[in-house]
Design a protein around this nucleic acid. Structure first.
Lengths: 109, 109
DNA sequence: AAATATATCTTGCATTACAAGATAGTGATG
DNA sequence: CATCACTATCTTGTAATGCAAGATATATTT
């Protein structure tokens, strides 16, 4: 207990799904996009394994495309299953943040 | 990815600190209190190890007292270090929920 | 005596963020 | 041409933590 990394567990995947829903995007760009939303920078050891896991679970699909400046990019899109999971995630997030804010504000007793 | 348990990591301890700050309380009652704030029920395997860990870290102090209906209760109080950690947690939580809500609402690009 | 409710602890497991290192393609600089 | 820097992805291993399952103990009720 001291840094933010534990708090990201089970939350980061939902955030990725939400960004991917906006349109095809590849991992390297995703990391940058997350920062623009206020997150602190992520290492590749975080993003890539997560994307592979979600692909394996059928939440996202991927296609390789040439890059103008480097090796091939792997573009991810949301599957139907991924959309369902995103909806489910949002519910869980709203439930959680409601409860935590209750505790911190000492309401709801 | 499917249940809420991963999302609690690194969040539950802050919630405990916040409740303990309101006054001495013992584990069994803490679990019930959390539910009253909107959390789903916690097993003892969650609460007690967490309290022991926080005690070991010096965030809370504990005293045993007789119970009217069962074995001795272990009442926890917040230490100064615990108060500092609570403040730090709240900052991390606000930063995180800000970022997540940004992503979900697609703002801040 | 037995059952029930209260109260705490221990061991082991599953999940997941992340660091560190490897690999590879492209363009610019010297 | 060689070297460097930037882009881009993957793999392996580690640390942290919520939680299930089981053990233990006390007090009241049946």
């Amino acid at each position: 207990m001291a840094d933010t990394t534990q708090m990201l567990k089970g939350i980061l995947d939902g955030c990725l799904l939400s960004i991917i829903k906006d349109g095809e995007i590849y991992g390297y760009e995703l990391a940058a996009r997350l920062e623009s939303y206020g997150f602190t920078s992520f290492s590749e050891g975080t993003i890539y394994p997560l994307l592979l896991r979600m692909q394996k679970e059928g939440l996202v699909s991927a296609t390789l495309r040439k890059s103008t400046a480097g090796p091939k990019r792997k573009y991810y899109s949301l599957t139907e299953k991924g959309e369902g999971e995103l909806v489910s995630f949002i519910k869980r997030w709203e439930q959680l943040s409601f409860s935590v804010n209750n505790v911190l504000d000492k309401r709801g007793m």
